[in-house]
């Protein structure tokens, strides 16, 4: 699902493609899609895609590795729950925005070490966010309204008096939020701030000499990234699962989001969506294919193992053969098929 390209000034085939996809996503899918498709595939796909966009801002564009994405999902989810619960007068969209801001604040705090640490060491320090948030949400009952295991049940949402209930409405709500957030992110990345991210990633010393404010740029990347992941967390908790516990936001989830951007394509918004689609659809395909080929031998244990093996193998293969991910493969393929007169060296975003 392509997002607008960074250089979005002319009307191109890209724009027509996006318009078509939007038409299908709003005009056809909600009316014809089964509840299973909407609830179990598309809604989690949208939430994960937004989280991947968020992580891609930080890791793909600004070059700061993070293993704490699930923590920011959790912060967003629990913050929205508490704003909704404790200040019921707040419209839900305001709670959503505030939840993103809380996640951004937490992200800023855990982004501070990036001034001194880079690469592997920074990744390890972001693990602190991962473990701290999960621990805090379980330890302090206030966050979950004193539920003994930290579980929260998301209430049915009301947007301007319309209850967001039923698979279709939850899907349309998620789609809208994800599109707006992605659109604003694309605008940011195309601006000077986005160029600063890439400058810091590609050559930090040159960036400093040239006058890029390193502290502000890195913290902005952490803030924006955590904001987006926080919003994704709200969608995850309120539109997709509707009952979440801290254990659901564990390190596995952080890795899942990291894998999405590695598989889909680093520093690519479209890659984030492609990667999320892959991660959501792939296990379903694998279980269908596995069951058809092997019958009863292919139980859930085997499924999970084979899933990990294939994804692991895919990541290794991609890192060696095409570090820019599936989206680069797809672009090359589409150039060959459609023979678009496009600059071979132009890097799509």
């Amino acid at each position: 699902m392509p997002a607008p390209s960074i250089r979005a000034s002319r009307l191109t085939s890209n724009h027509i493609g996006i318009a078509l996809l939007l038409g299908v996503a709003y005009g056809i899918v909600p009316f014809t899609g089964s509840e299973y498709l909407l609830d179990a595939i598309l809604t989690p796909f949208l939430a994960l895609a937004l989280a991947a966009v968020g992580l891609n801002v930080l890791t793909g564009y600004a070059g700061q590795v993070s293993l704490g994405s699930a923590a920011f999902l959790a912060v967003g989810a629990y913050a929205a729950y508490n704003f909704n619960l404790r200040i019921p007068e707040l419209p839900f969209l305001v709670s959503l925005l505030l939840a993103g801001l809380v996640a951004a604040l937490v992200g800023l705090v855990f982004g501070l070490p990036s001034l001194r640490l880079r690469g592997f060491y920074l990744a390890v320090s972001t693990l602190a966010a991962q473990f701290f948030v999960q621990w805090a949400l379980t330890k302090f009952g206030w966050f979950s309204n004193d539920n003994p295991s930290g579980v929260i049940d998301a209430p049915t949402l009301n947007i301007a008096g319309i209850p967001v209930s039923g698979a279709e409405r939850r899907y349309v709500f998620s789609l809208t939020i994800v599109l707006i957030a992605t659109f604003l992110t694309v605008r940011l990345l195309a601006s000077q701030s986005g160029r600063n991210f890439i400058a810091v990633r590609d050559h930090e010393i040159a960036a400093k000499v040239i006058g890029v404010p390193l502290l502000r740029t890195k913290l902005l990347a952490f803030g924006i990234s955590s904001f987006l992941i926080g919003i994704a967390g709200v969608l995850w908790a309120f539109a997709y699962l509707r009952t979440v516990e801290p254990a659901g936001f564990n390190l596995d989830r952080s890795f899942q989001i990291l894998f999405i951007i590695i598989i889909g394509g680093l520093a690519s918004i479209r890659g984030s969506f492609l990667g999320a689609a892959f991660i959501v659809v792939f296990p379903l395909l694998l279980s269908r294919v596995g069951a058809a080929l092997l019958g009863n031998v292919f139980d859930s244990g085997v499924l999970e193992m084979s899933q990990r093996i294939v994804i692991g193998g895919l990541i290794i293969g991609l890192l060696i053969a095409e570090p820019r991910g599936l989206i680069a493969l797809l672009d090359r393929f589409s150039i060959r098929v459609f023979r678009k007169p496009r600059h071979a060296n132009q890097q799509p975003n």
Partner: peptide, 18 residues
């Protein structure tokens, strides 16, 4: 010490970032 992922024009524009 170019920013390899940016276009030539974007690289040059970075020179005015301050």
């Amino acid at each position: 010490a170019l920013f390899k992922g940016l276009s030539v024009l974007d690289n040059v524009m970075m020179g005015l970032v301050h």
